[in-house]
């Protein structure tokens, strides 16, 4: 099991963001709720092939 702090640090590092230790602690503390809210999006019933609401257009 990867610690939440490790996950958060890795994601921030991948984005190149360097918050202060206090800010990092806040992000770590808030991450479980953040992740749970995002995970809940996958529980919404929908067609397996449902498209995203934003659609690509080849026209400029």
């Amino acid at each position: 099991m990867i610690a939440v702090e490790t996950t958060v640090q890795a994601l921030l590092q991948a984005a190149g963001l360097v918050p202060s230790p206090e800010e990092l602690a806040g992000l770590v503390a808030g991450y479980p709720a953040h992740r749970a809210a995002l995970d809940a999006l996958y529980a919404v019933p929908m067609d397996k092939e449902e498209e995203p609401q934003t659609v690509f257009s080849p026209l400029p």
Partner: peptide
């Protein structure tokens, strides 16, 4: 804004699918 680094690309696309729902 920086908190969005904790949201994955798949999460973002799923959010757009939920918007369609």
């Amino acid at each position: 804004i920086g908190r969005a680094a904790l949201t994955t690309a798949a999460d973002f696309v799923q959010a757009q699918r939920v918007r369609r729902v």
